[in-house]
């Protein structure tokens, strides 16, 4: 174990970690947006929207995220979409995790007892009022934990953008493995930083989950 080397290179890893955190925050935000729209489409009364939602989930979850990223970044210019690597990473991974979040959010909404809808409708609430005032507040509590699992996967998933040369944590580790021939040290250093990011996020999710339970 080469401690000196670790002490020498860790500032570069911390800088790269900021990019990983940025990627995580932006992709999760975009994923939540796509997931909400996707779930709304999948639960819609219009069969056209349901078909669009189901196709989105099936295609995105049925193909590798890496390929989706490559289509967007390398193939995009052919159909007039010019993105730099960071933008392509955020959009590609955000749309990807959005498909998984669609199913999480839909699952939580469906899991709310059917009697709640029936009672609200009987009391004279409209369909949209029932959803907004009765179903969603209850579903929101149910989805915190599973969305936390999606977010945990996404933080690790941001490593994929190393393949399109975004200088984040994994890319930095790979470059230093190549130049120092110390894969174990570089893995531990990058791994430790990922652990910190994931565990801090996990604590945040647990805190939210606990709070949602009390009220």
């Amino acid at each position: 174990m080469d401690i000196d080397l670790i002490l020498r290179v860790y500032p570069f890893f911390l800088k790269a970690a900021l990019v990983t955190i940025q990627l995580s925050v932006l992709t999760v935000a975009l994923g939540l947006l796509c997931g909400s729209l996707g779930a709304a489409a999948r639960l819609s009364r219009s069969w056209g929207l349901r078909l669009i939602g189901a196709t989105y989930v099936s295609v995105i979850r049925g193909t590798p995220a890496l390929i989706q990223l490559f289509i967007l970044y390398f193939g995009g210019p052919q159909i007039g979409i010019q993105l730099d690597a960071f933008e392509a990473g955020v959009i590609g991974l955000g749309v990807n995790i959005g498909a998984y979040m669609t199913e999480t959010i839909r699952g939580a909404i469906v899991a709310v007892d059917k009697g709640q809808t029936e009672a609200a409708r009987t009391l004279g609430l409209s369909r949209s009022e029932t959803m907004r005032k009765v179903i969603l507040p209850q579903a929101a509590r149910l989805m915190i934990r599973p969305l936390g699992v999606n977010i945990n996967a996404q933080i690790k998933g941001t490593a994929l953008v190393a393949a399109i040369s975004v200088v984040e944590l994994t890319y930095t580790a790979q470059r230093y493995i190549g130049s120092t021939y110390k894969p174990f040290e570089m893995f531990l250093l990058a791994g430790a930083i990922y652990m910190v990011i994931i565990h801090v996020t996990g604590l945040g999710v647990s805190w939210l989950d606990r709070r949602a339970r009390i009220t």
Binding site: L169, G178, P183, F187, Y194, M195
Partner: peptide
């Protein structure tokens, strides 16, 4: 707790080392 891609780099380059 770590990305698969990072683990692949560790195993591939680590075994060579």
């Amino acid at each position: 707790g770590t990305p698969l891609l990072l683990q692949l780099f560790l195993i591939y380059f680590g075994l060579i080392q």
